[in-house]
Nucleic acid binder design. Sequence first.
DNA 1: CGGCTATGCGAACAACGTACGCATGACGGA
DNA 2: TCCGTCATGCGTACGTTGTTCGCATAGCCG
Lengths: 238, 238
Amino acid sequence: MATDDLPSVWTRQRRSRDQPSLNRSQIVAEAVALLDAEGVDALTMRRLGTRLDAAATSLYRHVANRDELVELVVDEVYGEIRVEEVGEDWRASVTDCARSVREMILRHPWVASVIGQVGLSYLGPNVMRLNEGMVAMLRDSGFPVEEAGPAISTVLSYVIGVGVSEAAWLTMLARSGQSEQEWQRRLGPAVVRAVEDYPNLREQYVVGDDVDPAELREQNFAYGLDRVLDGLEPRRRA
Amino acid sequence: MATDDLPSVWTRQRRSRDQPSLNRSQIVAEAVALLDAEGVDALTMRRLGTRLDAAATSLYRHVANRDELVELVVDEVYGEIRVEEVGEDWRASVTDCARSVREMILRHPWVASVIGQVGLSYLGPNVMRLNEGMVAMLRDSGFPVEEAGPAISTVLSYVIGVGVSEAAWLTMLARSGQSEQEWQRRLGPAVVRAVEDYPNLREQYVVGDDVDPAELREQNFAYGLDRVLDGLEPRRRA
DNA sequence: CGGCTATGCGAACAACGTACGCATGACGGA
DNA sequence: TCCGTCATGCGTACGTTGTTCGCATAGCCG
């Protein structure tokens, strides 16, 4: 029974000029859900339209094109990053924010695939908020004006570099349908063979079978972040 | 006059089993050239085929699919990174290698778009060489075994983070067909307006009109790299 | 009540990745 | 010398993509 054939008060579409059945933020939210569920290749105008009970071409009333949609989607997930006011321990504050960025990327691994297309210092409101917040943090914790910018840029570059690497790794894992441990066990021998000719790498690759890969990644992230903050520490003015 | 209609000694194809008219490394090299010249959207099997005087489908005899081609192309440009043996000054050696990575990315800005799809710690020969070389550098300059890995991971994450950001920025500039200075002058007022509500960002955005944006990026990169190395320095064993 | 405008959609188009099957030419053994 | 085999190239074709265009509809305002 198609609603088109039996128009009545109940089936009649309640489309109002003020409340259209489709709007931009709804589209962006559904796009994020689609990306999270099925990855970056699944973000198609038609598929997104289907999920919204709309035709693909309807989306173009609210979004200029696919690229703009991606920009909006990226800014949307930037909104998930928490940036609190700086407390007594500036390292703790920056660390918390940095972890928050990493968590966002791992929650939405597809950002790794699009971050290079969309840039990151663009003018989306959430990106602005993040930058403003981080600069404020460093200023309040004693960094001179002319170094606050470069300093947060350093932290963010590191965090994003790690995040992109990890996300790309996890995406590849997901595509192959294997868990991290599975991969380690199945392709471990192949890696050992590939590493064979490189003495320094072989020396590195003495990972015990019992370590959790996810925790290892976390430790590496923490190590690098600590080093970056160590390097920043003496630039503060007490 | 089609060569097909008048077969002769001169027009006859010199195709040998040992020297096919198409080979993988030639395809990869031409793909890099195409990407450099026209950006990531221009890398299509048909266009690449045209540049090689071949049909699109011929490429599939030498490359499994587009994704594999991208992996090969990425490893190819990783080959441009120079990694020398460590000298007396370990910071100078690491810095040189890091600069080399950045230069490679700026020479091929499209890597920013694909690095998130292909990962970066994969098993391509040139990536292996880079990792081996950097681990060797840090080991030889006094880093303990268990920290050499995390340490190069820290440096590389930072460098790649910066590189991806810069490349994305330059790509967007190239798409809009404007130079960096043009952009600064034309959209400067819009940025000022966007920054208006954020006191800490406004404080940052006091860039003189006479500074060269490219040099400013370079200085920021150097600042962050110095901080990372500052943080790594005390982890060495003399 | 009648025109205006914002919104949704079906159809269509060019371009894409790629599977398939055929043609062709070089090689290796008889 | 000849013939089967095999590697390589290519024409065709299919399904999917982003996007444009023109039409239909339904609420709003005069």
